[in-house]
Design a protein around this nucleic acid. Structure first.
Length: 957
DNA sequence: GCAAGGTC
């Protein structure tokens, strides 16, 4: 008796997988296609047998996540609640409007089926989507038997194996994603609302977000990404150029020229360099000490993952990662390349790589190379290397269909397709082979070396035109051979800061820190541009905007590392623990949210740091309705500070009360009121004792649980200075926040930050002014940080004491030698150059030490163009924090503010120093036609034969 | 109007 067929609903993560799996399982026989409710998600029907059970298979798909997490209605509007409530507000998953048609298809099909087989991608997100599908399907048919198909590639063997070995979905994997989603939503929404409402209208922000409101978003991926950009920017600002010295030697012979570089690299000590140089000049005979010949291989790249595609397209074509992914997606949709979102950088042994090459043989440009690859006798083929990553869901990006270019392709389509094809062909090619020669010589005990390279066989470089392997020929030398150098020069250079982060650098930083996924990293970068946090220049290098820098600075000054990648790393590690069952979902969620809520409350408590950071860059907004000043209340009294405007009772968006001068920002008089006030209204009662009057009393209602039992919750108080109860409650409860610890009366007025237990200080106008008007740079109250006399325009001061780059502007200015602009003379304060004076032209970047300014012209090229504003020694220094991840708390900064953590390239000595090729002395001056040194005993600084340069009185060393 | 994660 035959087994009765059952109806099986199969669901894949995307339409292309549904189509591929249906094709494989049906072997393209008896495969029918019909429309579903959604135009993208077809339904494939075919017969199949699973472990002897005949099945009527229906195969359809979703489009990624089917559901979204959202706050309950009561919390959805921005003003509906305190943002801190978002840490415990109810959240629920629902199917958004644009996915409703997919949901209907699933429901309609699920009703007819006995089994549900989930063909979602085999990663954590896929598992979570699987449970979303289960929720929808069991909602209409709770008798469904639910199965999970596990496969790692869309190839016959894998798919059939998965179908015959169905398992159950993994709840733990899905739980891990639930944790991530909830944390992202709660943190993102709370901080975004908080900082947007705090800052957007409080400052004049000249960013135009088209027809939408400017949102100052915070996200656990976007902020660390911004952090990378700001950190590098600060590193550049902090850089102080240092002059260094190196000896170069060249030798011309009949066979060509060899350029020898000093094996010491370079020295920062001029005297040492001069002494050694003069030794060499005195005994200039070079002896060849070693000749090394080696064969070197240059390997082709690993198979192409998404991040590599983005990085290479940025590097080779200056294409943004966002545009690259857009174009790659279109090429994928049209069938020309494989799935473009993949971490995998090694091909599975089952992949028919020859077939892919075979397809490309007809191409007019690289077709011939493809033919050579397939020609066994050419010996060009090599099985591709493995980069060691495998997402178990997709192969590396490779061409899937031949094209010599389509009529509807843009330039970018051509470029991305060409990159994918050439990269694939390179991957299956032999490495390039070169012969390298290194020659080492000795001059007066100093070692120099030169190297040359000849490419013996280009191999993959023939097709991978994006890479080159430069090298020059070196004349032949033998060990023991001696010669007199043609030129022996003492050259100077200045250290240069690292470059701004390029898009490829940024992607590397994110990848290393685990920020975002291959499919989302470009989104995070774009978000920074959209939010006006960063800009990208023509060289694809990123700088923070004032807004981006101010936000990072504000949080940094609070001591929180919300802009660092540690929070995300901690979340990732928690997710991992949940997915393997070593931590429970609720445990991970509660712990993380508690920590983040405490951080949020503390950040809000310290919001003055954000405001101060913003003040360093932006003007305060004077219009009514702006920021914290948005609720003009009733007048309490005439302002006792400016005596021109009234002071009014105001309630801030965070719920706290204050009495502030309506003449703001010209007058910053303010009285902060206790944080335990629930309600406050100005009465018509006038205080009998406070002057100058009238001072109207305020009717307060306090929150019972936030004041000591001995105080009444109702109080008719005066802010004029006569009211002991109000002063006591302010001292007990603090201002600004409800959760403040109490501060003893002794701390009052002793430089604590706002909200730290100050009394209502109506009798001390200067102190109340101080609360809002303290400069973050010098601590004075007479001005704001944006007009601090200690700062240059729009520049920021080092706030740490461990700076090694402090250099102070002197009064005097001198015209730049190159462009004539007035340049302030500054004094260096570094280890090697402490006390030396210099100027660095802001207009043309010409840099010169004062030793050389106005000195005689005996030495050529005293200054140097260091080609970057980064040379500006006024920059911020010492910012950034420990390289080490603080183990105890991923948010709170650990340790002190040490040297900046470098992303990608470091800035340490020896790493980023570049010689500007500046020659001080042509060696020919010292070497006669016969090769004998002639002028070695003459100071080459002033030309005087009575002394060496190291003791030259003109140098002032 | 907030996040980040899927994907057409």
């Amino acid at each position: 008796m035959s087994v009765r067929p059952i109806r099986v609903l199969n669901v894949a993560e995307k339409p292309s997988v549904a189509k591929a799996v249906a094709g494989i399982l049906s072997r393209n026989q008896g495969l029918r296609v019909r429309e579903g409710r959604s135009r993208y998600n077809k339904i494939f029907e075919f017969s199949y047998v699973i472990n002897g059970q005949p099945c009527e298979m229906m195969m359809t798909s979703v489009i990624g996540h089917l559901m979204e997490l959202e706050f309950g209605d009561r919390y959805r509007k921005w003003n509906s609640c305190d943002p801190a409530d978002l840490y415990h507000a109810p959240v629920s998953k629902h199917v958004p409007e644009d996915k409703k048609d997919i949901k209907r298809t699933l429901e309609e099909e699920a009703r007819k089926c006995q089994w549900l087989v989930l063909w979602l991608d085999c990663d954590r997100e896929g598992e979570n989507i699987a449970f979303e599908v289960v929720e929808v399907c069991t909602g209409v048919n709770n008798r469904l038997d639910i199965w999970r198909a596990r496969f790692s590639a869309l190839i016959d063997r894998e798919i059939h194996y998965a179908a015959q070995n169905l398992a159950r979905p993994n709840q733990l994997f899905s739980d891990a994603v639930d944790v991530r989603q909830e944390i992202d939503l709660r943190i993102g929404a709370s901080f975004t609302r908080f900082q947007t409402m705090l800052l957007r209208d409080a400052f004049v922000l000249e960013y135009y977000a088209e027809d939408r409101n400017l949102v100052l978003s915070y996200g656990p991926c976007q902020f660390p990404t911004l952090g990378f950009i700001v950190e590098r920017y600060w590193e550049i600002q902090a850089h102080e150029p240092e002059e260094f010295w190196t000896i170069n030697c060249s030798h011309n012979s009949d066979e060509g020229t060899a350029a020898f570089s000093w094996m010491r690299g370079h020295l920062f000590d001029y005297t040492c360099a001069v002494i050694i140089y003069e030794m060499c000049v005195e005994e200039p005979t070079a002896t060849v000490t070693e000749v090394k010949k080696q064969e070197k291989l240059k390997y082709p790249p690993y198979p192409l993952s998404t991040i590599e595609l983005e990085k290479r397209a940025s590097r080779y074509f200056r294409m943004s990662s966002e545009q690259t992914m857009k174009v790659a997606e279109e090429l994928y949709q049209a069938g020309f390349i494989s799935y473009p979102r993949t971490e995998t950088d090694s091909f599975s042994p089952q992949t028919d790589l020859h077939a892919v090459v075979h397809d490309q043989q007809g191409h007019p440009v690289w077709g011939a190379y493809a033919q050579r690859l397939l020609d066994h006798n050419a010996g060009l083929w090599r099985n591709p290397g493995s980069g060691g990553h495998d997402d178990k869901a997709h192969p590396p990006i490779h061409p899937t269909k031949f094209s010599a270019g389509e009529s509807n392709w843009s330039q970018d389509h051509h470029k991305v397709y060409e990159l994918v094809v050439r990269h694939f062909l390179a991957c299956v090619s032999q490495p390039a082979v070169g012969a390298e020669t290194t020659v080492e010589i000795d001059i007066a005990g100093e070692g120099f070396s030169a190297s040359g390279r000849v490419i013996l066989s280009k191999n993959y470089l023939d097709v991978y035109r994006f890479e080159s392997w430069g090298g020059s020929l070196l004349p032949r030398y033998d060990v023991g051979q001696q010669f007199i150098p043609t030129a022996l020069t003492l050259d100077s250079g200045v250290t240069r800061p690292p470059a701004l982060l390029s898009e490829a650098d940024l992607l590397s930083c994110m990848d290393k820190a685990g920020i975002g996924t291959d499919a989302t990293m470009h989104d995070h970068i774009k978000k920074l541009l959209d939010r006006f946090y960063a800009t990208k220049d023509a060289n694809t290098r990123f700088s923070p905007t004032h807004l981006g820098e101010a936000l990072v600075l504000g949080y940094d000054d609070m001591g929180y590392e919300l802009w660092k990648p540690y929070l995300r790393a901690a979340m990732e590690s928690d997710m991992k623990a949940v997915s393997v069952g070593t931590k429970r979902k609720n445990e991970a969620l509660t712990a993380c949210l508690e920590q983040m809520k405490a951080c949020f409350l503390d950040a809000r408590l310290n919001k003055v740091k954000l405001l101060q950071a913003m003040e360093a860059f932006f003007e305060r907004n004077n219009r009514a309705g702006g920021g914290e000043q948005n609720q003009i209340g009733h007048v309490v009294r005439r302002c006792n500070l400016c005596q021109e405007s009234d002071m009014a009772l105001k309630r801030k968006p965070d719920g706290n009360f204050m009495v502030g001068c309506l003449g703001y920002p010209q007058c910053r008089n303010v009285i902060w009121l206790p944080g335990s006030i629930a309600e406050a209204n100005v009465s018509t009662d006038v205080c009998n004792s406070c002057n100058p009057g009238p001072v109207y009393k305020i009717r307060f209602k306090f929150r019972r649980l936030e004041i000591p039992p001995s105080y009444s919750i109702d109080h008719l108080g005066c802010i004029g200075g006569c009211d002991d109860i109000l002063r006591e409650l302010t001292e007990i409860c603090g201002t600004g926040s409800r959760i403040l610890p109490t501060v003893s009366a002794g701390a009052q007025g002793q430089g604590q930050g706002p909200g730290r237990g100050r009394g209502p200080s109506s009798n001390n106008a200067s102190r109340t002014t101080n609360q809002q008007g303290t400069c973050i740079h010098c601590g004075q109250t007479a001005h704001y940080s944006n007009s601090c006399p200690s700062q240059g325009p729009r520049s920021r001061a080092p706030t740490s004491s461990n700076s090694r780059t402090d250099s102070n502007a002197d009064e005097a200015s001198i015209p730049c030698e190159t462009c004539g602009s007035p340049c302030p003379v500054r004094t260096a304060n570094t280890e090697n150059n402490r006390g030396r004076k210099f100027y660095s032209c802001r207009d043309c970047n010409f840099f010169v030490w004062e030793d050389n300014v106005n000195s005689n012209g005996g030495r050529g090229g005293r200054g140097s163009n260091i080609n970057s504003a980064a040379s500006n020694p006024r920059g911020r220094s010492g910012r950034g924090s420990n390289t080490n991840n603080p183990a105890s708390n991923p948010i709170r900064r650990g340790g002190g503010r040490g040297r900046s953590r470098s992303c990608g390239r470091g800035r340490d000595r020896g790493e980023t120093h570049q010689t500007n090729g500046h020659t001080f002395i042509p060696a020919s001056t010292f070497v006669s036609a016969t090769g004998e040194p002639t002028a070695a005993r003459r100071c080459f600084s002033c030309g005087d034969p009575s002394h060496f340069a190291n003791v030259c009185p003109n140098r002032g060393l």
